[in-house]
Amino acid sequence: MSVYINPIANGITVSLMIIYLAFIPVLIYQYRKNGTFLVRKNIVLASFAVYMITAFFMTLLPLPSIEAVKNMAPVRANYHPFLFVKTFLNESGFIWNEMGTWFRAFCSPSFYTVAFNVLLTLPFGVYLRKYFNKGLFQTAVLGFLLSFFYEATQYTGVWWIYPHAFRYPDVDDLIVNTLGTVVGFYAAGLLDKLLPDPMKDKSLKTEYASLLRRLISLLIDSIFVNIVYELLRVVVLLAAGKKENTIDIVLYLISVVIIFILIPCISKKKRTFGMTILKLALRDGKGNVPRLSGMIMHNLFIAFWLNVAVNIIGMIDNAWIIIFLQLAVLGFAAALLIISIKNKRVTYFWEKFFDTYMKADI
């Protein structure tokens, strides 16, 4: 079974890495376009990516070395349709009118290899019908093309990376994989109620800025803070020729002021880079651009609690100051949690104090 388990494990691992790298860009795109994170749609997209990569790996892995393939006799392709039927009847011991032979026959490689090939493309048929709105004929054609890609990859030695084919290209695989896609098409009809429906995702462009959207904005701003900080460190290090924690703290504070104060002050809509990318904006209680002093105090408050206090802790040697900052951060988190529980929703209590509210820039 390792011939199946290892490619599946590798496919899932690679898929999760791709999903991890794509998560933030997809999140930003959906917030900008839809004003919300489309949970069901993303589940479908992620599962489709996992399936496609894993299925491809199952037709390709394990990969031998090029030297091993050079020393290997070329693999001859099978061009005889339905050879798998003859192989099954000859090798499995199956006798249709003797029930005792059925179980042994279904456990033979001549059967489960074909069965796995059907299962390989069955999900593809489900996706095509349920999520890509393809008809039966289109599903069958696309299933055939997918299988043809697999077989062509094998036949060409992974598109001529290898000197010749090292896996067994088989016309029967085209037939069985296409059949699997068609079976998946009909299975989608039976499983329709159980599968997630992206149409139920609400694409609402509202003024409400969710916690996740705010955090992504802060993450982006933090990245810019660190970029500016590292650039300043390089300049100072080249000029002074030495590194000190005190200088690092000052440089970091300057970087925070540049990103959270200077950039919003000189920008037309009074926004940080993160707010611009996530289409967020500060508004006062009347929906207007807030006073400059309110914007500065709001951004300084956020920059300190969610940026400076966390990052500067690692730059300080004094244990008492570290403890104080840690307690301050915990106190802020506790206050946010308690007030939010009391109001039965996430409550950003400082916004009312500064009369600056984070809104989606519709």
Results as ranks from 00 to 15, higher is better:
Ala333Arg: 05
Phe304Lys: 04
Gly294Pro: 04
Gly11Cys: 08
Asp173Cys: 07
Phe354His: 09
Lys344Gly: 03
Val176Met: 13
Glu244Val: 10
Val183Thr: 04
Glu98Asp: 15
Pro7Gly: 08
Pro196Val: 13
Asp221Glu: 04
Gly35Trp: 04
Val3Ser: 15
Ala334Glu: 11
Asn343Ile: 02
Gly331Phe: 07
Ser47Asn: 05
Val310Tyr: 11
Thr101Asp: 10
Leu61Pro: 07
Phe23Ala: 15
Phe353Ile: 15
Phe324Met: 10
Arg167Ala: 13
Ser222Pro: 00
Met52Gly: 02
Val75Thr: 07
Pro163Phe: 10
Gly100Asp: 13
Thr206Pro: 00
Leu61Ala: 14
Thr156Glu: 00
Tyr155Arg: 03
Phe324Arg: 01
Ala140Lys: 10
Asp170Pro: 10
Leu232Met: 08
Tyr29Leu: 07
Met52Cys: 09
Leu262Lys: 07
Asn34Cys: 07
Leu191Gly: 01
Ile220Met: 11
Asp317Gly: 07
Val114Asn: 02
Ile266Ser: 03
Pro264Lys: 08
Arg76Gly: 04
Ile53Gly: 02
Pro7Leu: 05
Asn90Cys: 05
Lys342Gln: 09
Ala49Thr: 12
Val69Ile: 07
Arg32Pro: 00
Phe56Thr: 14
Met99Ser: 14
Leu336Glu: 06
Tyr252Thr: 02
Val310Gly: 00
Val257Met: 08
Tyr150Val: 12
Val126Leu: 15
Val44Glu: 00
Ala9Leu: 14
Ile312Tyr: 00
Met52Tyr: 00
